[in-house]
């Protein structure tokens, strides 16, 4: 196992390169999902904020 980690004396190079690549993959996985969730929350807030303003219009139409 320690031989595997040592990578023939180049362990620090190999594992740093793999570690940075893994960090980039994880950031991408996290940020893409976080962005969608954030935008959906904003859309939900905007929809909720619009609702009271819209309701009277609908009831007016129904009353006509």
């Amino acid at each position: 196992m320690s031989e595997f980690l040592a990578m023939g004396g180049h362990g620090s190079y190999v594992w740093t390169a793999y570690g940075i690549t893994l960090a980039i993959l994880l950031w991408n996985l996290w940020s893409a999902g976080a962005m969608l969730r954030r935008n959906l929350r904003r859309a939900a807030r905007e929809t909720a904020a619009d609702e009271p303003a819209r309701r009277p219009k609908v009831s007016q139409l129904e009353g006509e």
Binding site: G8, H10, V14
Partner: peptide, 8 residues
């Protein structure tokens, strides 16, 4: 030629 470091 490169040994283990080629694994990058």
């Amino acid at each position: 030629v490169q040994g283990e470091v080629y694994r990058i």
